[in-house]
Design a protein around this nucleic acid. Structure first.
Length: 97
DNA sequence: TGTCTGACTAAAC
DNA sequence: CGTTTAGCCAGAC
């Protein structure tokens, strides 16, 4: 039987390479039926202490989603070498896959 | 069961 | 490029 959507989402999340990013919609499309909102929910529900790269998930317009951890997210991406342009967008070459 | 909400998106201006 | 709008669908109440 197919794994729960949440499990599929987290499995995909764990495969995003360092220095690369992907979008809510792309992750959703890789699962068997999840929607971008479900991906967002899955990230929000992540327990603290996990080691999944939640900060490598951005919006379809390649900006950071609006949430409380956006500042930390931007910092961690920059630490990995992901740059933001003057309008706060990530270069599309950084998209994974 | 009905209504509201949200770490989203695509389309229309 | 920005703002708005409708669609989306699983949780919380």
């Amino acid at each position: 039987m197919k794994p729960a959507l949440t499990e599929q989402i987290l499995t995909i999340l764990a495969e995003i390479p360092p220095g690369r990013v992907t979008t809510y919609g792309r992750i959703a499309a890789m699962t068997e039926g999840a929607t971008p909102r479900m991906v967002a929910r899955a990230l929000r529900e992540l327990p603290s202490g996990h080691e999944l790269p939640w900060f490598r998930v951005i919006t379809a317009s390649r900006r950071l989603a609006d949430h409380g951890g956006a500042d930390e997210q931007r910092r961690r991406l920059i630490d990995e070498g992901v740059a933001f342009d003057a309008r706060g967008r990530v270069a599309k070459e950084r998209l994974w896959p």
